[in-house]
């Protein structure tokens, strides 16, 4: 087992934990963190894979992708936080209501 594979598995585990958190956590901030954890897991997988080139030199493309991904993650997180803040401001809620409100 190479380091790269280990990293990749680690990334997948992180993704799983993040997924668990996103689904099962009720508090919105926790959810935001869990989503970011998922993202981190995916990025870890990508970076690990960049090392798997036959030549041994890291592949620049996954790096570029991770960078782009981070940008996306940052803006998404910002939006999430903005929305959560607004919801809290309006209703005082920190969790999404259980029942679907149509």
């Amino acid at each position: 087992m190479t380091y790269a594979t280990l990293y990749a598995i680690c990334g997948v585990v992180l993704f799983g934990i993040g997924f668990y958190g996103t689904v099962f956590c009720r508090h919105l901030i926790r959810k935001v963190m869990a989503v970011n954890l998922m993202g981190a897991g995916v990025f870890l997988v990508m970076i690990a894979l960049a090392a798997r080139t036959p030549s041994g030199a890291p592949d620049p493309v996954p790096h570029a992708m991770v960078l782009t991904g981070i940008v996306v993650a940052v803006s998404a997180t910002a939006l999430m936080l903005a929305l959560i803040r607004r919801l809290h401001h309006q209703t005082g809620l920190t969790e999404l209501p259980e029942q679907m409100e149509h």
Binding site: V42, M46, P62, M80, L83, T91, L93, L96
Partner: peptide, 30 residues
């Protein structure tokens, strides 16, 4: 508030979906 709740829920779902997708992309690229 209703719209905000809906938006947040949508955002979480969408991000989760995107990350699934991204993981798939990573696997494909590998």
């Amino acid at each position: 508030a209703q719209a905000l709740v809906a938006a947040i829920r949508y955002l979480f779902a969408a991000l989760m979906g995107s990350l699934f997708y991204l993981l798939g992309v990573a696997l494909l690229y590998s």
